[in-house]
């Protein structure tokens, strides 16, 4: 698959014709991207800090995980949609930006980790899971999403 061809296509797509022509629309989408990122971060923090026994100790961790997962997915959808729109405005520039690729790699890993490891594992009764496994998964999850967000911020600086 030719990755560069995809960025060239995105650069001239109808999305790009909106995102490049209307700075105001771009800025508003960017705000929603940020708000969704914060919501996702809040859900990750609440869930993982509960698994670590820092927050909400008097609420069963199964309940906390169930509710945070739902809003996590909502936020992720908003993030992906707004992210693709924002990328279309600077597609070629992003292709040559190493932080963008750091972000894509960590994002792909993050999505894989959440939906194939963390979620299936936490479907089991938490008391039957080794507490150290739970702690490791919680720290790894927070770390991954931190790297995704931090590399995203750094795309703008580089």
């Amino acid at each position: 698959m030719d990755v560069f061809a995809f960025f060239q296509w995105l650069d001239t797509s109808w999305l790009a014709s909106i995102s490049k022509a209307y700075g105001g629309v771009f800025a508003v989408v960017q705000v929603f991207h940020l708000l969704a990122m914060l919501t996702l971060g809040g859900m990750v923090l609440t869930g993982d800090l509960r698994l670590l026994g820092v927050l909400l100790k008097d609420v069963p961790s199964e309940v906390v995980i169930e509710h945070t997962q739902k809003w996590f997915s909502v936020a992720l959808v908003v993030l992906l949609a707004s992210g693709i729109f924002m990328s279309s405005a600077v597609a070629i520039k992003l292709y040559y930006n190493s932080f963008f690729w750091a972000k894509m790699a960590s994002l792909a890993f993050g999505i894989f980790f959440v939906y194939t490891i963390r979620r299936p594992l936490l479907r089991y009764d938490h008391s039957t899971i080794n507490p150290w496994t739970l702690r490791l998964v919680a720290v790894a999850s927070m770390t991954t999403w931190f790297v995704v967000a931090a590399s995203g911020r750094w795309i703008g600086f580089s």
């Binding site: 940020l34 914060l38 971060g41 809040g42 859900m43 990750v44 609440t46 911020r153």
Partner: peptide, 14 residues
């Protein structure tokens, strides 16, 4: 400043 928002605003959202 931006990433701490995930803590402040994230908890507020919950």
């Amino acid at each position: 400043h931006v990433l701490t928002l995930a803590l402040f605003f994230g908890m507020l959202v919950v």
